[in-house]
């Protein structure tokens, strides 16, 4: 039991740290993409390509560069999480009603004031939606971490496979599913709250 709690905690910690990094980088790149159309296409294309690399292959590649351990897993999670966050940020910012941007400009807001006072607040629900998708994905991808010497619930599942112990596999797998479902539900609720005052 203690082992399970420890593994769950470790799993969540790896995912949480990766998500924080992915959010900062993803929103930043998303804003950049909304400002510079061309660059935006390049950024999103790269993020899409990364997304299509099978996780096993990506992990192997990263392992060659960063070695074994939690850091490598974290980097892989960040890379996978980027696409939904960048894309949602970019779309949310470019699809704001032109009248609102016109009003903001006409009233004398500088570009950064527009971004922080109007554009980001209005884009938040959609950005949050991107983070939600990324997070729920990350929770299950993190299981692969066991293959490159990272901890988390993957370790318990892997041990179960080696011992051909179905119960053990389930003890590792079920928390992953439950946690993912919980975050999906909770974050959908928060998303709805956030979008109350955006139209």
């Amino acid at each position: 039991m203690r082992e399970l709690l420890f593994a769950t905690g470790e799993h969540l910690l790896i995912v949480a740290l990766s998500m924080i990094v992915a959010t900062l980088v993803g929103v930043g790149l998303g804003i950049l993409s909304s400002w510079k159309k061309r660059l935006g296409t390049v950024i999103i294309t790269i993020a899409e390509i990364v997304q299509t690399i099978p996780s096993l292959a990506l992990l192997a590649l990263l392992m060659i560069i960063f070695g074994l351990g939690n850091l490598t897993m974290g980097i892989a999670l960040v890379l996978y999480a980027l696409l939904p966050i960048i894309r949602n940020t970019q779309v949310a910012l470019t699809e704001l009603p032109p009248a609102i941007i016109d009003a903001a400009r006409g009233m004398g807001m500088s570009r950064s004031q527009r971004l922080t006072q109007v554009e980001i607040p209005l884009a938040i629900p959609m950005i949050f939606g991107g983070i939600k998708v990324a997070l729920v994905n990350s929770l299950s991808i993190a299981v692969m971490g066991v293959l490159i010497g990272s901890g988390g619930l993957g370790y318990i599942i892997y041990r179960g496979i080696q011992q051909r112990n179905m119960a053990r596999i389930l003890i590792g797998a079920i928390p992953v599913v439950v946690i993912a479902l919980f975050f999906d539900w909770a974050m959908t609720k928060i998303e709805q709250r956030l979008s109350t005052h955006t139209t």
């Binding site: 009248a99 009003a103 006409g106 009233m107 004398g108 500088s110 006072q117 607040p121 209005l122």
Partner: peptide, 28 residues
């Protein structure tokens, strides 16, 4: 940007900021 702060601006689509209250909108 400085010039615009000295000139009021009203548009047809109204363009109130939906994320701000009436007071916040007026206080922009």
């Amino acid at each position: 940007v400085e010039l615009r702060r000295k000139i009021g601006y009203v548009i047809q689509q109204i363009g109130l900021f939906p994320n701000m209250t009436v007071e916040q909108n007026i206080s922009v």
